[in-house]
């Protein structure tokens, strides 16, 4: 098993190098003066300029520059934000919990609704529940979520007044220091009455919006995985054994279908982060997605560079975990390696 994990990690090294190279080239390919791009300072004296060139190592050959960049990365130095003059690492990890909280609730909603929907559609294949569920799933899959978010705000916040328009907490009535960065957890830790409710209240619309596309994908994939599994011989065996239908479908079929579905859920993390950019923008959610957009519009290139690098590494990490989980959930792979 340990060997299995190591071999999986080894496979990621070329991709990792490729990503860092892409991030490195990103700044160099930008039109304009690299000093300005990296420091954000304009119209500076020649002296200051020379200082900068030495600081960023721009006088050295590109290949040397890349390796020193790589060395910095491995030491945890991802550059400095131009707008705040703080390390990109700090900025990123400060905002990551907000995005993770949102993504967690989104994937929770997506799984809790998507998986049962897929099962029902497969079992009722070709009949109206199948058509209704799969029609909805395709609509969800085709949804421009930025519009969907606006629509929900219009309905639930502006018209009905049920949910707040933006933010993570009712900051007029509650205040507490962040401990974990997860608002729901912090609210619970603070012990203030109603704080958790307020946090969830703020979470509900953004996470519903963000869950839309993963939910649709999960429902569709669960259906097709279930259809495939339901035709297998061992399902016939389970019926021949006299098991009740719910047990055949809910345990024997689902356990096998889950092997595929877990992979699909894992692959949604990329979609989720891309979706977070849009969702966070609409709901003014202070996560990494909104931070990236702000960085792009402020031309804070070191931040964009670092952010892209972090996010792709995060996606790689999640994919690795999914890969390993696949081995853990599928007995055939588990001891094949």
């Amino acid at each position: 098993m340990f060997k299995f994990i190591l071999s999986k990690i080894a496979l990621l090294i070329p991709t990792f190098l490729g990503i860092t190279l892409a991030a490195f080239l990103f700044v160099r390919l930008l039109p304009g003066d690299p000093v300005t791009i990296l420091s954000g300072e304009r119209g500076i004296s020649d002296e200051r300029r020379a200082e900068m060139i030495a600081q960023f190592g721009l006088d050295k050959p590109v290949i040397v520059q890349y390796f020193s960049y790589l060395k910095n990365l491995l030491q945890g130095d991802f550059g400095q934000s131009i707008s705040t003059h703080r390390p990109v690492v700090e900025e990123f990890f400060e905002r990551l919990p907000a995005t993770m909280e949102l993504a967690f609730f989104a994937i929770l909603i997506a799984v809790l609704i998507g998986v049962p929907a897929g099962i029902i559609a497969a079992v009722k294949r070709g009949r109206w529940p199948d058509h209704v569920l799969m029609g909805s799933a395709l609509t969800g899959y085709s949804m421009p979520i930025f519009w969907w978010g606006l629509l929900l705000i219009m309905l639930f916040s502006t018209t009905l007044g049920w949910t707040p328009v933006s933010g993570r907490l009712d900051i007029i009535n509650y205040y507490f220091e962040p401990v974990t960065g997860f608002m729901t957890v912090d609210a619970w830790l603070s012990g203030q009455e109603g704080a958790v409710k307020s946090a969830l209240h703020h979470l509900i619309l953004p996470s519903v919006v963000l869950s839309t596309i993963p939910m649709a994908v999960i429902a569709r994939q669960t259906r097709s995985a279930m259809l495939e599994v339901l035709g297998e011989d061992y399902i016939r065996t389970a019926y021949a054994k006299g098991l009740p239908t719910w047990r055949v479908i809910g345990i024997h079929a689902l356990r096998n279908a889950m092997i595929t579905v877990v992979t699909v859920i894992g692959l949604q993390v990329g979609t989720l982060i891309a979706g977070a950019v849009l969702t966070e923008t609409i709901f003014s959610w202070p996560g990494v997605g909104k931070w990236m957009i702000d960085a792009i519009s402020h031309r804070d290139y070191p931040a964009v560079q670092g952010g892209l690098l972090f996010i792709s590494m995060l996606v790689m990490l999640v994919n690795l975990i999914v890969d390993l989980m696949y081995g853990w959930i599928n007995p055939r792979v588990r001891d094949g390696k």
């Binding site: 190279l21 990236m292 792009i296 964009v304 996010i311």
Partner: peptide
């Protein structure tokens, strides 16, 4: 191609547009 796929698509597109 693996490198391109390692980035969430919309985010990579955003990065490219930034360039």
């Amino acid at each position: 191609m693996d490198v391109i796929l390692a980035f969430p698509s919309l985010l990579l597109a955003l990065g490219l547009v930034a360039v």
